[in-house]
Amino acid sequence: MSTTTPGSAAGTISLDRSTPAYGGFNRTLLRIELMRILRNKRTMFFTVVLPVIFFFVFRANSFNSGSGNASAWLMVSLALYGAFVANASTSAGVAVERAQGWSRQLRLTPLRGPAYILTKVLVSSAVAVIPLVVVYGLGLAFGSRAPAGDLVLAFVVSWLGSMLMALFGLAVGFLLPSENTMQVMGMAMTLLAFGGGVFIPQPVFSHAFDLFARWTPMYGVTAMAHAGLAGWSGAWMWVLNIVGWAAVLGGSAVWLFRRDTGRV
């Protein structure tokens, strides 16, 4: 928040200054960043429309899906996928900011890497609420049935867990030139979703593929989102997966932001 020093216009410039709390994290920054996303019609279109299309294309009828019906399983998966994509594509927008020299400009302010990364993650996760709400609404309207507690758990885990992809989007956005970022993100989201068991349920994985897939960044979150329906076996591994990837992606994002002072 701005604090004005009254009457100092004629007075001398003060050298008695301090650095902001929380590395410069503040509500004004959060509000303006959020407004920027909500004003971006293209992002909003894909965030809302994509999961809706997927839901109607993939509406399944029968497979063993634990405590809920197959439609519930699919609802959880597609909502999660929508949340992953919303997070990743929103945060990958930093590539465009870099191209405009904005991240370099931010290096001339007190804003610290972690505060900026946190802002971006919060904004991305706010956007991710949209596909979650839309798909759960559609699912419940079109016959997805599961115990309420399992669905609430799935919703909350999906929302919080999908923030991992916001970190992924930031890391990619800080790493690649803006013209390549979106292609890479599209491809990466699809591959990671297969690896994570978003499209094809993890219980269907071959043992060999599962041994590989558990190292991929959507695996833990996806498993935990489905845990209400399919059980908690292997939960320690999911937690390890989530914590590990959060550290790797978050660390990369902060490091790449700090490094990013080049001229445009």
Binding site: S2, T4, T5, I32, R36, R39, N40, V264
Partner: peptide
């Protein structure tokens, strides 16, 4: 050159910048 976000307004840009500092002018 550079250093500006194209999709925000003039006032928002300065407001955002101001929000990052402790000691600011109006």
């Amino acid at each position: 050159t550079g250093g500006l976000l194209r999709d925000v307004s003039v006032a928002e840009t300065v407001e955002l910048t101001a929000s990052l500092f402790v000691h600011t002018r109006d």
